[in-house]
Simulated scan of single mutants.
Amino acid sequence: MSTETVAKRLVALCREGKFEEAQHELYAKDAISIEPQEMASGPMGNAKGLKAILEKGHHFQEAVEQVHMSEVSEPVVANGWFSVAMHLDATMKGRGRTDMHEICVYHVHNDKIVQEQFFYDVH
């Protein structure tokens, strides 16, 4: 599977809200997930390995009270890398309504995502 194929599949699944399915299908078992430095610790911080990434996703989903809108851009692909812009307008438990914009960068090796890194402002 080419990087472009992986990128398009990830975008399609994310647009359907199938984040965990995307991780099971497209991520390497030893993949890593990197958050901005201010968010690196804690249950939704950096994670190593697919099991930890799935757990991180569960923590995030549990924190979401209601999704008002979710958008994922078309991917930009360069060799073994791709990026997408994501926008989530959601009500978060204990935090209220949050409008999140981020750039997500993925590294693909041997047809699997081996790294994801998120860039967003932390307020």
Rank of each mutant, 00 (worst) to 15 (best):
H101V: 09
F60P: 00
W81N: 09
N110M: 10
H58P: 00
I103G: 14
Y27N: 05
Q23Y: 03
I32A: 06
Y106C: 07
Y27V: 02
A31Q: 02
D30Q: 09
F119D: 01
A63I: 00
S33I: 01
A28I: 00
Y106S: 05
E16F: 03
V67S: 15
D89W: 06
M86H: 11
E74H: 03
Q66A: 11
G17T: 04
G94W: 09
E4L: 13
A22I: 01
K18M: 09
P75L: 04
E71Q: 15
S70D: 03
A40Q: 11
E21S: 07
R9F: 02
E116K: 14
Y27K: 03
E35D: 05
P43I: 07
P43F: 07
S33K: 01
H109Y: 12
E4H: 07
H101M: 10
H68V: 07
A52C: 06
M39A: 10
R15H: 05
E4I: 13
Q115C: 13
I113L: 06
V72G: 03
H68T: 06
A28H: 06
S83W: 03
A85F: 08
G45M: 06
E21P: 00
N110A: 15
V84A: 06
Q37F: 06
V67I: 15
V114Y: 02
H59S: 14
K112A: 05
V64M: 14
V64R: 10
N110D: 15
E71W: 09
G80T: 06
F119I: 04
R15Q: 14
D30N: 12
D89S: 11
S41C: 00
G17E: 04
I103R: 12
V64E: 09
L26F: 05
E116H: 12
G80F: 02
Q61H: 06
L10V: 03
S2R: 08
A40F: 07
L13F: 07
T98F: 12
F119K: 03
V77S: 05
C14E: 14
F19D: 03
V11D: 03
K48E: 15
E65P: 08
F82V: 01
F60W: 08
T98W: 09
V67W: 07
A22S: 10
H87C: 08
I32E: 05
D121P: 00
S73Y: 02
Q66F: 04
R15S: 08
M100G: 06
L50F: 04
V6F: 04
E71P: 00
K51T: 10
I113V: 14
S33H: 07
T3N: 05
N46C: 10
I32M: 03
N46E: 11
S70R: 13
W81H: 13
Y27H: 05
Y27C: 12
Q23I: 09
F19H: 05
Y120W: 13
P43T: 07
C104S: 15
E116T: 13
M92A: 09
H87M: 13
Y106I: 08
H24S: 04
E4T: 14
M100W: 12
K51A: 15
V64G: 13
M92T: 07
A52P: 01
M100E: 09
N110S: 15
E25Y: 04
G57S: 08
